[in-house]
Design a protein around this nucleic acid. Structure first.
Length: 260
DNA sequence: CCTATCTCCTGTAGGC
DNA sequence: TGCCTACAGGAGATAG
């Protein structure tokens, strides 16, 4: 499922490929998106010049000269490809003679939606231990649910939140307000580190096809994962514990030895 | 405001 | 082998 590093990987590939090119045609794909796409607004992209692709949290923005930007969210199964085929093409743009396609088999993705209110970028200086401690303070919800709340910090999903908590030595079910300043600082630092590693490695491709960049290439972050999707901890070898759909309705895994 | 639960959807994995 | 069900996931809506 695409989180900040996967979206950034897509952004870089598309930005390099499409910048300065013209959107020659737009085809709004088959029936409906999960939330109805503004088909007329999407068709109006025709003739626009691509200024570039930018990213905010897990959202990808296609920026055009003199026109409103188009927001994409990949949801869990969304993919943007250059030329790739699938039965689930929701939007197809011809850009500089190449077919840029948005696919989404499960329809949790979006295109053309407004950009919601989001917390700070976790790779920016505004996101640090002091900020995290301040927003977690006094809250009883599980810390994992809160760091995945995009209004508090924009970009962590289940994989990177799980890995950040492991790297910080904090169990996912801990009440957010129970974290010390030092733990909040460790968690902010760990979040930054796992996300930076994810970006550097081109995202995490956990099982076949789960994430591929626009040219169909897998990432390598899965090689660095310590607990997510594992039976034993990648640091100490202890059996990974976890429960299904336990926190925010999502599976939560942790190492009982490395995490307190 | 805060928290927990439910919903959207469909490909895949597991059970029988 | 093949059918059937449960499950996964992000984010928004809703209820308490």
């Amino acid at each position: 499922m695409p989180e900040l590093p996967e979206v950034e990987t897509v952004r870089r590939a598309l930005d390099a490929r499409c910048r300065g090119k013209v959107v020659e045609s737009v085809r709004v794909g088959r029936p409906t998106f999960y939330r109805r796409p503004p088909a007329a607004a999407l068709r109006a992209l025709t003739g626009g010049t691509v200024r570039g692709f930018s990213r905010r949290g897990k959202y990808l923005l296609l920026n055009l000269e003199g026109r409103p930007s188009v927001v994409f969210h990949l949801g869990m199964s969304g993919r943007l490809t250059v030329g790739g085929e699938s039965p689930h093409v929701r939007l197809e743009l011809t850009v500089g003679g190449e077919l840029l396609r948005f696919h989404d088999s499960r329809r949790f993705g979006r295109v053309g939606c407004p950009l919601p209110e989001l917390g700070p970028e976790p790779l920016d200086d505004a996101f640090d231990g002091a900020y995290l401690w301040k927003v977690l303070r006094g809250r009883r919800a599980p810390v994992k649910a809160l760091i995945m709340d995009q209004r508090l910090v924009a970009g962590l999903g289940n994989i990177y939140a799980t890995e950040a908590l492991h790297a910080a030595g904090v169990r996912p079910g801990r009440a957010a307000g129970s974290l010390s300043r030092a733990e909040a600082a460790a968690l902010a630092r760990a979040s930054r580190e796992v996300l930076e590693a994810g970006v550097a490695l081109g995202g995490a491709t956990l099982d076949d096809e789960s994430f591929l960049d626009p040219l169909g290439r897998p990432g390598r972050m899965q090689e660095r994962v310590k607990v997510y999707g594992r039976k034993t901890c990648g640091t100490c070898g202890a059996a990974v514990l976890g429960t299904r759909r336990s926190i925010g309705g999502r599976a939560s895994l942790y190492c009982p030895s490395c995490q307190r």
